[in-house]
Nucleic acid binder design. Sequence first.
DNA 1: TACGCGAGTGAACACTGTTTACCAAGTAGT
DNA 2: ACTACTTGGTAAACAGTGTTCACTCGCGTA
Lengths: 240, 240
Amino acid sequence: MTEAARRDRKRADTDHQIRTVARALLVDNGAQSVTLRGIAREIGITAPALYRYYDSFEDLIQHVCADICADLADELAAGLAVIPEEDTPGRVFAVCRGFRAWAIRHPREFSLVFATPAGPAATGATDPFGRIFLTVAGRVLATRTLVVPGDLDVPERLIADLTLFRATLLDNLAETGVAVPEHVFSLGTAYTMLRFWVRLYGQVALEVFGRFPFPVVDAEPLFESMVAELALEVGLTPPG
Amino acid sequence: MTEAARRDRKRADTDHQIRTVARALLVDNGAQSVTLRGIAREIGITAPALYRYYDSFEDLIQHVCADICADLADELAAGLAVIPEEDTPGRVFAVCRGFRAWAIRHPREFSLVFATPAGPAATGATDPFGRIFLTVAGRVLATRTLVVPGDLDVPERLIADLTLFRATLLDNLAETGVAVPEHVFSLGTAYTMLRFWVRLYGQVALEVFGRFPFPVVDAEPLFESMVAELALEVGLTPPG
DNA sequence: TACGCGAGTGAACACTGTTTACCAAGTAGT
DNA sequence: ACTACTTGGTAAACAGTGTTCACTCGCGTA
């Protein structure tokens, strides 16, 4: 029994090593240098051995994506831990700034995770980053100090999707141990989170991909002004 | 002399054919199926011959990107041509909706062009899509019926970049024959355009990539509400 | 002790982008 | 008209890719 456990641990060990090496290759030498043979060579085995751990190359990098998302989640959570729970504006800003800072510090990981068209299957709750954003932002908004549009103000045609979104959110929060009374999480709250995400993603992706319609020399004030405007709209007083 | 012209035309012909076939492969069989040998096979030549037309594979798809952007620009321009010049709200909505419609109709082209991290060199005015957005949106905003923040209201740290942006814009407009008095194109206008672009790109990219934090069943009302909100903020009365 | 399972290997297959040497055709120069 | 040169194209090769198949070798269990 202990023997089987040891064997399993060793397998999990090299499995972890595989993904670690893959990520190292990605950050050091770019996405097109992460290859089966390259990974295998780096850990001292041969390429076909990797098929004992993953069904295909695609399968491997999908798991690498999951790892990356987990790290991003950890970093956001760590940044959030420093800020008192009552300071909702501070927490919101921490998440936004943390996301941008991570994206800038890890542009290749960001590209891999966020610029790869995900099949319709990945849009569910299993989506790695979905959990991050849902959990982190959900915790913040659970303190319900936001000024959000009332349920009657959200566009009628959005109700169906927003209801689904809220359900996903509450499920995810409950799963991580945060119980949120359903009545404090209005459809307006869900709508606000969605708008947050659209602008945050747009701003960060444009900056990382260099797709602003002109050569921006310093994107930070642009980002700061956007998040300040965003916070203002939802009734958060930005910290000085 | 006519002989040389014929030769040049033939060369331009096959050159055009190359990019056309490359795009067809992209659209029909996905990005990973556009390959030098595949393209060559489709037009009845062999792979190394393509090097008479492009320096490398990367060079080729870069030109394909340019073609794609040109088509997008044409489509936006065509949609804009139907709407009278005085109807600024209609024109703004046409651009936004046209961009989304094109992205949904051509998801693979969209991914190729907008989800590929562009080196710092491509962020200049030579960037293919930069010209589109700049030109199209610039023409619209040249009618100056927008309610934009005054120059004194734009965040101080943004002035440098916004000034550069405005200069790029005016240059580009002048280049396409639209002369805009500099005083009607305030920094606030440039700022507004940037905010427009961030949200539009974020929304469309999230939809095409399937990266919303929950499985959206009908993204259109989400898009419509976003663009309506956006228009409202800049003082445009949305059409019924 | 023999069995079986599982990690790992080596060779092969069908690809990929890219380079080199070569070739045929047509233009240009004298 | 007869060279000389450019131009578009080819065949072969090279290094590398994901993937498969047959085959080991070692370890845990019956």
